[in-house]
Write a protein that binds this DNA or RNA. Structure first.
Length: 670
DNA sequence: ATGTACCTCTTTTTT
DNA sequence: AGAGGTACAT
């Protein structure tokens, strides 16, 4: 009881109001940097102090990272044992939890596999080839996007515009069911369906979660809203926290309407606005406010802070992206050397991942440590995916995608011809590929050499299957045995160009196994299945509880949401990049504006926005122009400069002093 | 069955 | 400029 009181006292009046309102629908409009996480965690503590049972509280986030952060923050405020009983989870893991319990009501098997984006893409590619041959130039990524969009909107197949895509869609969905697999969208769709169709399931889950909180509510899509409405009981204890100005996932189906028209879904909510910003200077906030004002259709908010005006944000024109990267890297190097500032205080934000390459090179040349957030996820690496596919195949024998991935990697004499034959046989007989491989009729079609190879493979798989299916299996040790049997290290050395790559991949394998032991130790009850589930849902680029590498952050504006840095550079703010050409075409300029707004509000004290006069595209140089957003922002809160002019200007006294100080330090440190 | 050389096409953001 | 896929050679 003491602790939550103290927690409440640390809040401003609006925050406190938000935290104390624990009954009925509540909408908290939390501007950037207004202490929203603190409000949520205090609110949870307050609920517990008011004798609401921990097991009845559910907090939903979008990312694993947000969930674990919240878990940690709550743990510092409340009793440890109670904290363990709280459910703090992402939408997707919540759905997995519901489905592992109740999916059989929908005629699915409980052992279903979860297909990640890349599994999904692989399957779609295969179906396109099968349905359309290669003549049809149907982009699999495009198909994937359309399918996902249709699924999220709940549009039946026939209504999709394109006939071919709708055929692919139908085939894809049927195939998933045969494979006993679900994709990310299915997790939500099926969870909603279970709750809709089964009174028993709905009652069960409503009884379980009586108080629900949702973070980053502006990012919820239709399905997530459906899920919430089904989960929220008659007493309507739901509290959502979000900021419509930071809604940047519209392209993934997020509906700003969920927050803009919250009253439509839950009547008479208590609405609290948080506008006191604890992160940035007034200069940064004024710039941000002046930009976001240009969006229509939003809940009016004006951020303010008591930090003073601070340093003037700069808008810097650069000749090209190479110079841009070099100039920023130089400046960071100087600041760290002279002012002794840690690299962690700096971040460079960009619109597209491809922009990170030049920055990385610039950092590397100067030996500036950096971390790229985003990029290829650990679990998407080839060697990691391979091993996970083996495990998934052991667990779900209908999982053809995993089987086909590993059937000849490492090579074991089962070639394309055999694989194609097995696939065709399985389709014809309506059985899984694995069953086809065991089928005597199928085997009789093969040469005796292939027969031997296939028989060796099925014997190998069945050798692991039984132990994989045992709940208490030590899967870390099992995987190590598997590695040895596969001679996987040799395989890596053979298939990698240079030994350096091979050793990096070996390291990744090692790390995967470590994370298995780790998971085994922490959640022993969940078994191998639980491990694979959490891995599939870990699209998060940072691995579980990995201590982040120190250094300058190189990060997309999307991935930067929720983070803050003393000094922020936003690069490539050009018409066509931000706003991106495609967004302009699609009529989503407002969302691009919000994206820049998110970028700006990451800065605590120093902000620099740069744009280039030229940029390479497909290797060709292309002239560029400053983003129209730059003209929308308050000129009195920005310093507009041209890097080329600046570079030629004779050094001012202070700059010269800095320079000599830097030289001295560099010489002295050697 | 495996490896290599070209050729294509690409660029948004990701739970 | 780079990745990924295809065609062809070994």
């Amino acid at each position: 009881m003491k602790i939550p009181r103290a927690g409440l006292l640390a809040l401003n009046p609006e925050q406190r109001q938000a935290a104390e309102q624990i009954h009925g629908p509540v909408l908290i409009l939390a501007g950037a940097g207004t202490g929203k996480t603190r409000v949520i965690t205090t609110r949870i503590a307050w609920m517990l102090a008011n004798d609401i049972q921990a097991r009845h509280i559910l907090a939903v986030t979008f990312t694993n990272k947000a969930a674990s952060e919240m878990r940690e923050r709550v743990a510092t405020m409340v009793d440890q044992e109670e904290a363990k009983l709280l459910t703090i989870s992402t939408f997707h893991s919540l759905c997995v939890r519901i489905l592992r319990e109740s999916i059989e009501k929908l005629g699915y098997k409980k052992t279903f596999s979860i297909y990640t984006q890349s599994d999904q893409l692989g399957l779609i590619k295969k179906i396109i080839v099968r349905k359309a041959g290669k003549e049809e130039n149907l982009d699999p990524k495009m198909a994937q996007m359309l399918i996902s969009r249709a699924k999220n909107r709940g549009i039946p197949v026939s209504e999709s515009e394109d006939a071919l895509i709708s055929e692919v869609f139908r085939a894809y969905q049927a195939e998933l069911k045969v494979l006993n697999a679900v994709d990310f969208d299915d997790l939500l769709i099926l969870a909603v369906r279970v709750l809709e169709q089964s009174d028993e399931a709905r009652a069960f889950w409503r009884r379980r979660y009586r108080y629900i909180m949702v973070d980053e509510f502006q990012d919820t899509n239709r399905l997530q809203m459906d899920l919430l409405r089904l989960l929220v009981g008659d007493d309507q204890h739901i509290c959502v926290v979000g900021d419509d100005d930071q809604s940047i996932y519209g392209w993934r189906g997020a509906e700003v309407a969920n927050i803009l028209e919250f009253e439509r879904f839950f009547s008479n909510p208590k609405v609290v606005k948080l506008e006191e910003n604890y992160r940035s200077t007034n200069a940064v906030l004024s710039l941000a406010n002046s930009l976001i004002r240009h969006n229509r259709n939003r809940r009016e908010k004006t951020l303010r802070s008591s930090k003073g005006d601070g340093e003037m944000p700069r808008i810097l024109a650069m000749p090209d992206a190479e110079t841009e990267a070099d100039a920023i890297a130089d400046e960071i190097l100087t600041a760290t050397r002279i002012k002794n500032r840690p690299y962690e205080e700096f971040a460079v934000l960009f619109r597209m991942n491809t922009q990170s390459r030049l920055l990385e090179e610039a950092m590397r040349r100067r030996e500036i440590p950096y971390r790229i957030i985003g990029g290829q996820s650990f679990f998407e690496r080839r060697e990691v995916k391979d091993l996970l596919a083996y495990l998934s195949m052991f667990l779900n024998q209908d999982d053809d995608v995993s089987l086909l991935r590993v059937i000849n990697s490492p090579p074991r004499g089962i070639g394309d011809a055999t694989v194609t034959a097995a696939t065709e046989f399985s389709i014809e007989k309506n059985i899984s590929v694995y069953e086809a491989l065991e089928d005597l009729e199928f085997l009789s079609l093969l040469s005796s050499k292939s027969q031997g190879a296939v028989a060796r493979f099925t014997r190998f798989v069945s050798g692991y299957r039984d132990s994989a299916l045992t709940d208490s299996v030590n899967y870390g040790a099992m995987t190590e045995a598997l590695l040895k049997e596969l001679n996987y290290t040799d395989h890596l050395r053979k298939t990698c160009k240079d030994p350096e790559e091979a050793s990096q991949r070996e390291k990744n394998v090692r790390e995967l196994i470590e994370s298995m032991y780790h998971h085994q130790g922490r959640r022993p009850e969940k078994g191998l299945r639980g491990f694979l589930d959490s891995v599939a849902l870990m699209q998060d680029r940072e691995k579980e509880d990995e201590n982040p590498a120190p250094g300058v952050s190189l990060i997309t504006m999307h991935a930067a949401k929720g983070l803050e840095f003393h000094t922020v550079y936003i690069v490539g703010v050009e018409e066509g990049v931000l706003p991106h050409t495609r967004s302009v075409e699609e009529g989503t300029r407002d969302e691009e504006r919000r994206l820049l707004y998110v970028g700006i509000t990451r800065a605590m004290r120093q902000l620099t926005i740069t744009w280039c006069r030229a940029r390479r595209r497909y290797g060709e140089p292309l002239p560029c122009y400053p983003s129209s957003f730059l003209k929308e922002m308050a000129p009195e809160w920005m310093l507009q400069e041209d890097f080329e002019v600046l570079a030629k200007k004779p050094a001012t006294e202070e700059v010269a002093k800095d320079y000599f100080a830097r030289m001295r330090e560099m010489l002295g440190s050697k």
